[in-house]
Computed example of a mutant assay.
Amino acid sequence: MRVLLVEDEEALAQTVKEGLTGEGFVVDIVPDGVSAVWAASEFSYDVVVLDIMLPRLNGYDVLKQLRQRKVWTPVLMLTAKDGEYDQTDAFDLGADDYLTKPFSFMILVARLRALVRRGAPERPVVITAGSLTLDPARRHVERRGVVIPLTAKEYGLLLFLMRKSGDVVSKAEILDNVWDAAYSGGDNVVEVYISYLRRKIDEPFGLQTLRTVRGLGYRLDADDPADGGVPPSGRPPSARR
């Protein structure tokens, strides 16, 4: 099992390499982000262990460039940055796991083995459903060349629906995945936000891709990206709410 270890602290890098070598891994070390992009793009690795705070190019940018180059090697972020937003950014950019320093070496080994077993299926950074595209890294939504501004809740709902594109999802599933556990209102809020989304992603484009499946829930279908145009005004839908 071949590992690319991206770490600029030489003592830590050598310690981790020695430990992983003892567990049967073959480890290459690079000390900066630019070298990491080159090595991961040019050679085949089973997993990449990537620090965030790196010289020349930080770990977030390394990860973003790798996924843009369609390098789908599993990536474990190994870093002292332990904020929830740091982790969210990493996962949105395509990270597979996240381990904070100081860490248990045996936990690191277990997680690396799990990533290797899982393999590296293709996972496009930009999610698409026909002509509708969503880039989690930039929180950017677009249809037929028109940028669609969304509120935070609309964005969360659309992200969930796009990840389930073609599947019917119930109100209960939507509430569980888009609203937090503290929400105590009724499920009518789902209907309200579905309506908001339709006004932004469908109606201005003359489409009906966000469908109600009577008695079951909702389904987001993919349209034909080559069919139809953009809103006559050329302006994006309103971002209110």
Rank of each mutant, 00 (worst) to 15 (best):
V146P: 12
G217K: 01
E173A: 14
P121E: 10
P136Y: 06
K64S: 05
D223K: 12
E9M: 02
S131C: 08
P121C: 10
L66N: 09
E7C: 06
P74Q: 04
L50M: 13
K200G: 04
D221W: 06
L157I: 12
G228I: 09
K164H: 15
W179E: 11
R240W: 10
T15M: 12
I107A: 14
A39S: 14
L50A: 09
P149V: 13
D135C: 11
G145A: 12
F105P: 02
A222F: 10
D46C: 08
A226S: 15
V168A: 07
R113G: 04
P204R: 02
V47K: 01
I52A: 01
F205P: 07
K171M: 08
D96Y: 00
W38G: 03
V47F: 04
M162A: 08
N58G: 04
T79L: 05
G59C: 02
F91W: 11
P231L: 06
D167K: 15
D167L: 14
T73H: 08
V109M: 06
R56N: 13
G156S: 14
R214G: 00
I52S: 04
R67F: 05
L50Y: 08
Y196I: 04
D86E: 14
T133N: 06
Q68G: 13
D221P: 05
T151V: 12
V213D: 01
T100W: 01
A13W: 11
D167C: 10
R163W: 01
F160H: 11
G24V: 08
Q87P: 00
D61C: 01
D86R: 06
D32E: 14
F205N: 07
G217C: 06
M1Y: 09
Q14V: 03
V62F: 04
E191R: 15
L99C: 01
V6L: 13
